[in-house]
Simulated assay, not measured.
Amino acid sequence: MNSDGGASQSVTTGGPSSSTPSATPSQDTLLATFGELHPACDHWVQGSKTASRKRMYGKDLVHADGTPATPDSTRPTTTTSTLGRRAVACHVASVGLVT
């Protein structure tokens, strides 16, 4: 109880004992810079094929160019998920080279 007879309330702030970590100013600057550069890199470095293939997933068989494979296809095939993962890896590598 406090001096006027009411119950006291404690207020916690986001200090050192807080469960959510806070970024240092240099980390904030780095994250802000990356946040601004990432769309520019996507626009200028990443090709349209890579951009569209990053969203591919599933077990359907496709050719390296993303076209559906037929059972009698003689060209090499892969799953759509594998093609999507390759596109994401290319994207990460290209952004890493630019930044």
Rank of each mutant, 00 (worst) to 15 (best):
M1C: 13
M1E: 14
N2L: 15
N2A: 13
N2R: 14
S3D: 14
D4G: 09
D4A: 14
G6Y: 12
G6H: 12
S8T: 15
S8D: 15
Q9N: 11
Q9K: 15
S10N: 14
T12V: 14
T12E: 12
T13Q: 09
T13Y: 12
P16C: 01
S17T: 14
S17D: 12
S18I: 02
S19G: 11
T20Y: 05
P21S: 08
S22C: 01
T24E: 08
P25F: 05
P25E: 07
S26G: 02
S26I: 03
L30R: 08
L31T: 09
A32N: 12
T33Q: 08
T33Y: 06
T33H: 05
G35T: 06
E36V: 09
L37F: 06
H38W: 08
A40V: 14
C41P: 00
C41N: 05
C41I: 06
C41L: 07
D42F: 10
D42L: 11
H43Y: 11
W44Y: 13
V45W: 07
V45Q: 09
Q46S: 08
Q46A: 08
Q46H: 04
Q46K: 06
Q46C: 10
Q46D: 04
G47H: 05
G47I: 01
S48T: 13
K49A: 14
T50G: 09
A51G: 06
S52R: 15
S52W: 05
R53G: 01
R53H: 14
R53P: 00
R53W: 09
K54R: 15
K54S: 12
R55M: 11
M56I: 02
Y57K: 06
Y57W: 01
K59P: 08
K59L: 06
L61C: 00
L61P: 04
V62D: 05
D65P: 11
G66K: 05
T67V: 01
T67W: 00
P68M: 09
P68L: 12
A69V: 04
A69N: 05
T70D: 13
D72Y: 01
S73Q: 01
S73V: 03
T74E: 14
R75Y: 03
P76D: 11
P76K: 08
P76Y: 05
T77I: 09
T77Y: 02
T78G: 02
T78H: 00
T80L: 13
S81C: 01
S81R: 04
T82W: 00
T82M: 00
T82I: 02
L83T: 02
L83C: 07
G84E: 02
G84S: 03
G84W: 03
R85K: 12
R85W: 02
R85T: 07
R86N: 10
A87W: 04
V88P: 00
A89S: 10
C90D: 12
C90K: 13
C90P: 00
V92H: 05
A93Q: 05
V95R: 03
V95F: 00
V95N: 00
V95I: 04
G96I: 00
L97S: 11
L97W: 08
L97E: 13
V98H: 03
T99C: 09
